[in-house]
Design a protein around this nucleic acid. Structure first.
Lengths: 247, 247
DNA sequence: CTTGACCTTGCCCCAGGGGCAGGGTTCCAC
DNA sequence: GTGGAACCCTGCCCCTGGGGCAAGGTCAAG
């Protein structure tokens, strides 16, 4: 048995929901949250909606799709026109921000396919590329990447300093030659007879460029310790060189 | 008491999380979900992470920010490179779709400020604007809008037919004159002596354009009933006119 | 008179964490 | 060496915005 009501409350919940592009469940949730007033019921207990409900529901859906929490939608639709206009401005700004974020995410997503650019800073990635250019093995480049990640995580400030330092060094042909020899020495035994000479060249190279210590301050001891303990985990030969050149 | 471990598992959970731009809680959730392997613990039971964890975590965050469900991230990072590439393509398409959706939402949001364009179809909005042009009162336009919402909700097909019919009629000056008189009659008493004349003009107007009935078929009875019962809820005078002209 | 579409309430479930409790640890400065 | 801030641990309940299902009552058409 169905009542015709006052001739304006004609819509069933399904018709209303379809009109607004919303599920029936969502309509009931909006009732529960107090966003949409409960309409009168017909004799069977069915809800019967009027056009105002459809208008209100479209407003709710529009704001909800914009990501506005339901609680705030209630406040917004209950407040005055200026307040609403200001809120809509703010929401629109937020949406624009979200569109920009999606663009950024898409770019990072594309970099997931390969390369290190996603995992280290742009400067660090440039430095690693420079190592590739001068012929350093991928194995050693991976160690550099890991070292950079560790340093950056543990001490961002000193890590950045250390990176600019190395980026500068890697433009010096002599340093590059030295680096390539380190690369070759990676899996030598710590007792290898060629290591002392490598240590001696290292010491000479550092001695020949004192401007780094004066310009950028003394090397950070924490960073140095971190680098040492890390390198030790990868190559016993390298740690031996460090011992020899410190002696 | 802290162990130095193997010199590669140096990072605390906080350092790792900060590096990847993620909360500590999120890292623990990723452990629970099996996305990120649990690292070794130091003597205090603290988790100690290596660079691989940071790399993995950045991948997880990138996919999670793209809206990929955590369960699927697990599968994706566990599968081969081609599979991953295909999935990334699909995710990217989804992101583009989302950006388009944001644009649409922004446009609708701007229309929330005023006007009916958000609540009725473009054609209906054009029809309502035409009524405004010819000088119909806002009160009656609101009734038209509500009627349109009801018809569209209850019977989209006939509603569209009815609208094209009315949109055509409203280009006829005679119909417009008649409509304006209806507008004026809105709140007359049902006994008003001017109503019979209005009913007579209505009948003559309908009689003078039989092409509608032949071209678009007979008027839908359900739509007519709906229109009548709805109009009755707004204006007793209108329903009286309908009775008179049907007689 | 049945069949399928619709409506009712009520309950539990999901992702992706956030927040808090109630405890232990480490680091830095004084 | 001592205090406090900052950090870490586990475990538990909470949130949004609904989805899904159960167990009915109702309506329109054939």
């Amino acid at each position: 048995m169905r009542s015709m009501g006052d001739g304006r409350h004609l819509l069933t919940i399904g018709q209303l929901a379809r009109y607004a592009g919303v599920t029936i469940k969502a309509v009931r949730v909006y009732h529960d949250r107090g966003l949409l007033p409960e309409p009168p019921r017909d004799e069977s207990g069915y809800r019967r909606y009027a056009p105002e409900h459809a208008v209100r529901l479209v407003k709710i859906r529009t704001l909800a799709e914009a990501g506005v929490p339901l609680a705030r939608i209630g406040e917004l639709l209950g407040s005055g026109a200026e307040r609403l206009a200001a809120a809509i401005d703010e929401i629109d700004r937020e949406l624009r921000r979200r569109a920009v974020a999606i663009d950024r995410t898409r770019q990072r997503l594309a970099q997931l396919q390969g390369g290190d650019r996603l995992f280290v800073s742009a400067e660090a990635a440039g430095y690693l590329d420079r190592l590739r250019e001068i012929g350093v093995s991928e194995r050693t480049i991976l160690v550099e990447r890991d070292l950079w990640i560790l340093m950056r995580s543990a001490a961002p400030g000193p890590a950045a300093e250390w990176l600019t330092d190395k980026a500068a060094a890697v433009t010096d042909p002599e340093f590059c030659a030295l680096y390539l020899d380190y690369d070759a020495a990676f899996d030598w035994s710590p007792d290898d007879p060629r290591l002392p000479e490598l240590a001696e060249r290292t010491r000479r190279w550092f001695a020949a460029r004192p401007q780094r210590a004066t310009a950028a301050g003394p090397p950070d001891p924490a960073a140095a310790r971190l680098a040492a303990v890390t390198a030790a985990a990868y190559s016993p030969a390298w740690i031996r060189i460090a011992e020899l050149s410190a002696a």
